[in-house]
């Protein structure tokens, strides 16, 4: 099985531990993992896996969908990236954080994703407050 896209298309899902810090403070590098499912429907606030033109895989959050274009941003990022539908691989339906599993229907997670990503401004403020109490 060559690529992640092939795995998702064949088995309907993919799972891996996250790399990098772009989804901090939700997902921590090399510690937390995600469960990604194949889907035809994506909505605002979904965390989804997509493939950049250079083949790099990215797991970020959808902040806006307009005219068939998906606007992605990592929870720890402030730059919005435009992604086309054909680049999408699947969406995160479950994840583990500090060794405990959650679905994306979990109340605390839903609250977090809506508040944290309400706007880049609120994210910047919350990021700073969070940073005072946690060292990344």
């Amino acid at each position: 099985m060559s690529s992640v896209r092939d795995v998702v298309n064949t088995y309907g899902y993919y799972s891996a531990t996250v790399h990098g810090y772009s989804m901090y403070p939700l997902l921590i590098n090399h510690r937390d993992s995600v469960y990604v499912e194949k889907t035809g429907s994506y909505k605002k606030y979904d965390v989804a896996l997509f493939e950049r033109k250079d083949g790099q895989l990215v797991l970020h959050r959808i902040l806006k969908i307009k005219d068939g274009v998906f606007y992605f941003c990592g929870d720890n990022d402030f730059i919005i990236e435009k992604v086309k539908k054909e680049q999408l691989i699947g969406k995160m339906t479950e994840f583990s954080r500090k060794g405990k599993e959650y679905t994306v229907e979990h109340f605390g997670y839903r609250l977090y994703s809506r508040v944290w990503c309400f706007s880049l401004f609120t994210k910047r403020v919350l990021r700073r407050i969070y940073g005072l109490f946690h060292r990344a």
């Binding site: 899902y13 799972s15 993992s33 469960y35 499912e37 339906t93 479950e94 583990s96 060794g99 599993e101």
Partner: peptide, 8 residues
Amino acid sequence: EFVLRNFA
């Protein structure tokens, strides 16, 4: 280096 997760 491997952990077991209970997903879906």
